[in-house]
Structures are given as structure tokens and as C-alpha cells.
């Protein structure tokens, strides 16, 4: 009885794994198939490097690729120190009540919907950026990155805290026994041991920043140009898909968004591979411990 039951459960899990793997592959195949008119004849590279001017018959997504990279990488530049600081406060500097309260607050933050951040951004951040930097409309790479940084920070903070907490306590005792300070303990023991976990956190957060649509759609201005400065209006791949999605199904404009999909897909795949490698490195550190 239990053996049959166990086998049934095993089959069920196998089916679940198979379906999710198949769906992922299927979606990729679907995008390539529908984007085929644009990919054929070596035009894929041209699409990646040319500009978007549908009325002149040019369906390049270069400005959107640059926009995506600029906004998400800048968001990481803002989010990393912020998250690192918070995580150090929660896991290293303060232990006890304050740490527990802060952690709860951060956990709540991870659940706030993106559109709320976008909304707050429009009414608070955009006028601020416009007035402080006297920079055009205020809808720009900088505004979107700042808000995205706020969006991805909670995830990063929790990951950082987890990887700090995983470093065995006995290491800390050893440092104290040798007469080391807490700062020395953190810099020379905790940080190197937690490094693989930090990389995982950064890749996860970067993936979220690249994949997020609403913040950039609401705050970056969506201009079809490769931004020259952080005060320029820009469009991400995800916003581009959202904006062009309403176009006629048979039009080349609509087909071009499949090229965006494939680019996003490849980008995420590369990220996942990086996470895998980092996780493997982390496993080795675990064995040392």
C-alpha cells in the first residue's frame, strides 16, 4: 500500500518537473517560431544592433537592450551598498529585538506590489529628480533605477542575511579567542565565507531588475533612444513588449517583440547559469565548513 502510494507520489513529482521543464522549452520555441520572419536570413543580429523606426521599416531593438542594461545595472549599483548595509545591521551589528523587527519589516517589503512603487515614483520621485537635477521631465534612467533599487533591495537583504547567518558560530568564537574585533571577524571571516551566497543574491536581484516591467514603464519615460546619460528617457525590453503588444498581430512590429522575448530569455538563461556556478562554489565552501 505505502509502496504504491510512494510510487504514485514519485510519478506526480516527476510529472510536475517534466511539465515545468517542458513549458520553459516550449515558450522559447514559441518565441523563436513567431519571430522567425525577423530571424531568417541573418537578420537577428541586425535587429539587435539597429534602431526602432517602424514607419521606416526598421524594427531594431538596440535602444531597448541598452536601456534595459543601463536601468538594471544602475539599479544594482544603488541597491548593492544599501542592501549590504541593511544586512550587516540586521545580521552582524545588532542581534536581538531590533534585528528581528528590521527583518520583519524587510520581509513585508518584499510583498509590496510593483505598481505601488511605480505610483509613488510618479508623484514623489519624478518631481524630485526634475527639480534637484533640473533634468528634463524627470522621467529618466535615474528615476527608474532608484525605484528599482528599492524594489530589489528587500530580496537582496534577506539573501545576504541568510548567507551571513549560515557561517558557523564557532568561526566567530575562534576569532574572538584570537583577540579579533567584530569588524575583523566580519571582513576576514564572514564575508569570504558568505561570498557565494552574496553572488547568488546579486544575480537573483539583477534578474528581477531586468524582468520588471512596471517600474520602467511608469518612470523611465519610454523614449525609443539609447540613453546617453542617466537623465535621458529610455525604454526597457519589457516596457517595449508592453507598449508594442497592442499592435496588429500580423504586423512586423508585433513580430519584433518576439525578438525582445528571445533576448530577455537569453539574458535570463545567462543569469541562471551564473547562479548555478555560484551555487556550486558555495557547495565547496560548505564542505570546508
Amino acid at each position: 500500500m505505502t509502496a504504491t502510494c510512494e510510487r504514485a507520489v514519485e510519478r506526480l513529482f516527476f510529472a510536475a518537473a517534466f511539465v515545468s521543464a517542458f513549458v520553459t522549452l516550449f515558450i522559447f520555441g514559441f518565441m523563436v517560431y513567431y519571430g522567425l520572419p525577423l530571424f531568417s536570413g541573418g537578420r537577428f543580429l541586425a535587429i539587435l544592433t539597429s534602431h526602432w523606426a517602424p514607419h521606416q521599416g526598421s524594427f531594431g531593438i538596440y535602444p531597448m537592450i541598452v536601456g534595459t542594461l543601463a536601468i538594471s545595472l544602475l539599479a544594482m549599483v544603488f541597491a548593492f551598498p544599501l542592501s549590504m548595509g541593511c544586512a550587516i545591521l540586521i545580521s552582524v551589528v545588532s542581534r536581538g529585538r531590533l534585528s528581528r523587527i528590521l527583518r520583519k519589516v524587510v520581509e513585508v517589503m518584499t510583498g509590496i506590489p510593483t505598481v505601488v512603487y511605480g505610483f509613488v515614483g510618479i508623484f514623489l520621485l519624478i518631481p524630485l529628480v526634475r527639480n534637484v537635477f533640473d533634468a528634463g521631465s524627470g522621467m529618466c534612467v535615474l528615476s527608474a533605477s532608484l525605484m528599482l533599487a528599492v524594489l530589489v533591495s528587500p530580496t537582496m537583504i534577506l539573501f545576504f542575511c541568510d548567507s551571513f547567518d549560515r557561517v558557523p558560530r564557532s568561526y566567530g568564537h575562534a576569532v574572538l579567542a584570537l583577540g579579533g574585533t567584530r569588524i575583523q571577524h566580519f571582513l576576514h571571516v564572514t564575508l569570504p565565507c558568505a561570498w557565494p551566497g552574496i553572488i547568488v543574491a546579486v544575480t537573483m536581484a539583477l534578474g528581477r531588475a531586468v524582468g520588471d516591467t512596471l517600474i520602467a514603464l511608469m518612470l523611465a519615460g519610454n523614449a525609443v533612444q539609447a540613453p546617453d546619460s542617466v537623465f535621458d528617457s529610455a525604454r526597457t525590453l519589457t516596457s517595449h513588449i508592453a507598449l508594442v503588444f497592442a499592435a496588429d498581430n500580423e504586423s512586423l512590429e508585433f513580430k519584433a517583440i518576439f525578438a525582445c522575448g528571445v533576448s530577455l530569455y537569453l539574458f535570463t538563461t545567462i543569469l541562471v547559469l551564473m547562479i548555478r556556478l555560484a551555487a556550486r562554489a558555495r557547495g565547496k565552501v560548505g564542505q570546508v565548513g
Binding site: I122, I126, A242
Partner: peptide
């Protein structure tokens, strides 16, 4: 011009102009 910002609806356009 390429540096034009894009709004997604009449309402969003109005909100953006009233803020800027």
C-alpha cells in the same frame, strides 16, 4: 524625436503633463 516620452493612455498622458 527619439527623446519623446511615451505614455500608455489618455489618463497617463494627462497625469504626466499635469506633473511636468
Amino acid at each position: 524625436a527619439a527623446n519623446a516620452n511615451f505614455s500608455v493612455s489618455n489618463g497617463a498622458m494627462k497625469a504626466a503633463i499635469s506633473q511636468d
